[in-house]
Nucleic acid binder design. Structure first.
Lengths: 129, 129
DNA sequence: TTAACATATGAACAAGTGTTCATGTGTTTG
DNA sequence: CAAACACATGAACACTTGTTCATATGTTAA
C-alpha cells in the first residue's frame, strides 16, 4: 500500500484520492504569507484575545478616557490597566496624550473598531435564537 | 487636595479637569458589552493569535486540505496540526468532512478571511516604506 | 483478519501571559 | 519645599497555552 505522499513522489499524483500533486503543494507553500508577517499578525490578534483589553477598547470606543476612569469602569486596579495599556500602545491600538497628572487614552484608528465588529458579527451569527 | 473621583462625588464634577461626571461614567458602563460577550470575543480572537493557526487558515484559504498535507505545508507534526484544527473547529472557524481515511478541512465562512484581512490592513499601514 | 495508514486525543512539560505588590517617575497643590 | 496624586514599571507568581510523545480510533488494502 502506498501513502498519499508516496503516490505523489512516484508520479501517480493525479490518481491519488487527494487530487493533490506536488506542484500544487509547492504553489500553496509559495502563496503562504511570510513567517514574519504571520507572527506580526498573530501578535496583533493576541491583543484582542484578552477580555480585559477588549473591555478597555470597548470603553475607549465610547470616549477618550484617563487611566483611573478606565480602572473604575472595569473595576480593576490601576496597575493592571496600565500594564494592558502599555501592550495596546506597543501594538499601535491606542494613542495617549498627557495633560498634567492625567494620561488620556483613545483608539488609534478606525481599524480597531472594524476588527472588533468583525468578531462580533461572527459570534452573533453563531448564536441562533 | 481632591482626587478626581472625590471631585465627582461632591458634585464638583463639571469643574473637574477631566470633564467627567459620575453620570457619564455610569453611561459608559451601561454601554459596555456584557462580560460573556467579551469572553466569547476574546476566545475567538485567541484563535487568530497564534502563527500556527494563522498558517493553517492561510493555507485553507487557498484550498481545502487534509491534515497530512497541512502538516507538510507547515512543516509540522500531524499531531500539532490536529490539535490546532480541533481548536479551530471548536470555534467554528473551519469545517471538515471525512472521506475514507482522510479528513478534509476548509474555512467555515467568509468572516474568517475578512478578519484576517482587517489585521493585515492594520499591520501594512504601520509599515511605512 | 491482519497490517498499514490517516487522524484524533490524553498526558506531560516548557514557554508565555495577566494580575498583584512594591516602588519609581512626573505633576500639582498647599 | 514637602505631600498628595496619577501613572508607569519591574519582579514574582499563578495560570494558560502550544508542542511532543504515546496511544487510541477508524478506514482501507492485502
Amino acid at each position: 500500500m502506498m501513502t498519499e505522499l508516496e503516490k505523489m513522489a512516484c508520479g501517480a499524483s493525479d490518481e491519488s484520492t487527494c487530487q493533490m500533486t506536488e506542484d500544487m503543494l509547492a504553489k500553496i507553500k509559495e502563496n503562504m504569507p511570510s513567517p514574519e508577517l504571520l507572527t506580526d499578525l498573530a501578535d496583533l490578534y493576541k491583543m484582542f484575545g484578552d477580555s480585559t483589553r477588549l473591555s478597555i477598547l470597548s470603553a475607549l470606543r465610547q470616549r477618550e478616557l484617563c487611566v483611573m476612569h478606565l480602572a473604575e469602569i472595569l473595576n480593576m486596579t490601576q496597575s493592571a490597566i496600565s500594564h494592558q495599556l502599555r501592550a495596546l500602545r506597543a501594538n499601535n491600538l491606542v494613542r495617549y496624550r498627557r495633560e498634567g497628572k492625567l494620561s488620556y487614552y483613545c483608539l488609534a484608528d478606525e481599524h480597531v473598531e472594524t476588527i472588533i465588529d468583525m468578531g462580533l458579527e461572527h459570534i452573533l451569527e453563531e448564536r441562533v435564537y
